[in-house]
Design a protein around this nucleic acid. Sequence first.
DNA 1: ACCTGAACACCGTTCAAGT
DNA 2: ACCTGAACACCGTTCAAGT
Lengths: 196, 196
Amino acid sequence: MRADAKKNYSRLLAVAHDVVAKHGVDASMRDIARRADVGLATLLRHFPTREALFEALLCTHLDKLTQKANELETSNSPDEALVSWFREWMAFTQSHRGVVALMASAHANADSALYASCAAVHSASARLLLRAQAEGTARTDMNGDDLFGLMAALGWLVDLPSFAPRADHLVHIIADAILPNRSSNDIEKQRAESER
Amino acid sequence: MRADAKKNYSRLLAVAHDVVAKHGVDASMRDIARRADVGLATLLRHFPTREALFEALLCTHLDKLTQKANELETSNSPDEALVSWFREWMAFTQSHRGVVALMASAHANADSALYASCAAVHSASARLLLRAQAEGTARTDMNGDDLFGLMAALGWLVDLPSFAPRADHLVHIIADAILPNRSSNDIEKQRAESER
DNA sequence: ACCTGAACACCGTTCAAGT
DNA sequence: ACCTGAACACCGTTCAAGT
């Protein structure tokens, strides 16, 4: 990559970050290019699609997120780990409004630049679910797809400003559904933890 | 309304129905006008916004849906009624792909042409929930907003083709979360009913 | 009353021409 | 190698002019 290309690349990422923060995930590519003092065609060659731009914009965040799943897998009890993971996911989606919809459709499209990230989140979820199922706390009649689906659905919902305040509570309800065999003591512990 | 206006109105609705069925909820207004052999401005005056068009397109369906809630309220046990209502909603969303997203954002926007319909669904849901809570089967730490949110979230999710096959199962899981105090007998009855 | 074409300000895609 | 302006085919909004 030539020096000027490198410079444009990082300048575009920085500008895109700001524009997306202000105007959301559907901000116009033209607008981003304009504000970066760069031709639209230049932006489009660095990031051929909106997904490619967001992949670059979020990859470090997404790496941190999936790495968090690994930590939870070793340091917490299976049921606590699963609920904490769900909460990590919700925190991620809430700090990147609109991205869930992008990821949810990328999930089924192997050509999407966001596909690999989705798969990583998906498999991290599936692993944590399996562990909780082996422990006996998680219901066994669901799989990683179901869990990812619920995560996507709730993430999408709390993107709507009117539902954002109910995010924690809805996660609590879904957690009860996924982990019906937790002792009420564990449930109480989780509730207290969520209020801390 | 003049005779020619009336004719355009119904012709536009018919064409819109077909175009939306084929190209989804984001079909271009221009395209609809074109296929109806009508000026774009004419379409836009009959239906000033996309929401207005869908309100007209769905109002009879939505009326049937909320009326169904009334029937369920009198003819079924509170917990069965609530689950059946959730299933009715899912059937509605699946036969009108993309509408959930429209309704979910209309829900918080009193100016939207779809606001009244959303409110009707919302209050029907809240009534059925209250009844099940009074009976003691539904968890009491949630309200109509939570229920509507879960309905919207699941409806949105199964709009994605990859999650459509898991719709029934996900409803089943959510129903368990909402109605933790059903006897296992009731749960079995619901499962059997869903497969009929 | 109702309809319409046209002008407007956008959008993302594509590519020949520049350095 | 990399960038860019311009042409293209779209989109929804608006309104003066028509019947």
